[in-house]
Amino acid sequence: MAAPSAARSLLLCVMVTAFLHHLQLQIPPVATAAAASPNKTDGRDDGRGKTFSLTLYQHETINKTAYMVVDGVTGAGVSQTTTPFGTIYVFRDDLTVSADRASRVAGVAEGSSITTSLDGLQSLSLAKITLHGHRGHRGSVSVLGGTYNTKPSDYPVVGGTGDFAYALGYVRSSPLDLRGRTVTYKMELHLYWPPYAHYAPVPHKPV
């Protein structure tokens, strides 16, 4: 009786091993995908899981899409690039796909700023940037940081909704044209999701 019992045990062991090997072949390579390079920017990855970069253009028209709601108290006067210390400014500006104001609108930037320097060139700004289906993405990111009116400014991302929920990173706003009643800014979004967020580079301070 011992020999048949040993044969049955050996046969059962072989069947279990074959089944486990077959099961292993059916498991998708999740671990391999997770180990992929975290520095790759993949705008086609449905906005989640890796990184996302996008450039849009903000167009702001005084007393049409942007208003001073509280006058400042001292310092520089009102000009194309300056406002008195303490000025509160609100805006709701279109974001287009190119620097041409007539190009397609992809979203909106809305927020406010408070002038925080006596030379009138710096302020504390908060804003929400919303995309309306541009490149298949819907949602918003919120930013908070300092603005230098005539130089590029970097704003940390402090929250997101929709496709941008849980995103971290920064938004860089650079003035392109400060002449005339309407001014134009280049807005670059650099977003990172867990577990890749800790690979996000520290933005270089604009010169």
Rank of each mutant, 00 (worst) to 15 (best):
A66Y: 04
Q24C: 04
G47M: 06
G43F: 05
S117F: 11
V16K: 05
T65D: 08
A18S: 08
T115A: 14
T74M: 01
A36E: 09
T61A: 15
S117Y: 10
T61L: 12
S123G: 15
T82M: 07
V108G: 00
L23C: 07
I62G: 00
L54Q: 11
F91M: 13
G47S: 08
Q26M: 10
Y89E: 06
I129L: 15
Q24M: 03
A7V: 15
R48Y: 10
T55W: 00
M15T: 15
T65A: 06
T55P: 02
H21D: 00
S103N: 03
S79R: 04
E60W: 02
A99Q: 06
T61H: 09
A66Q: 13
T96G: 01
I88Y: 10
R44Q: 12
L54R: 11
A18H: 03
T81G: 01
K128V: 13
Q26V: 12
L121Y: 09
A109L: 10
R101Y: 03
S37W: 06
D45I: 05
Q80A: 14
V16I: 13
V30G: 01
S123Q: 14
R8G: 05
D71R: 07
S113K: 14
G111W: 10
Q58W: 08
T17I: 13
D45M: 08
Q58G: 01
S125W: 06
V73Y: 00
A36K: 10
L56G: 06
R104G: 03
Y67A: 13
V14C: 12
P84T: 06
T130L: 01
A33I: 11
P84V: 05
T32W: 05
T87Y: 09
G75N: 04
G107R: 05
A106V: 12
A106S: 10
T83R: 15
T41D: 03
Y57L: 06
L12R: 13
I88D: 00
C13R: 11
R44F: 14
T32N: 09
H59F: 05
T87C: 08
D94Y: 01
R8F: 08
D100M: 06
Y57D: 03
G77K: 00
Q80V: 02
D93V: 14
L118P: 03
L95N: 02
L124S: 15
E60V: 13
E60S: 12
A35R: 12
V105Y: 00
K128D: 05
K128H: 03
M15W: 03
D100F: 07
G77L: 04
F85L: 15
D45S: 12
L20S: 04
A31L: 13
R8S: 11
L11K: 14
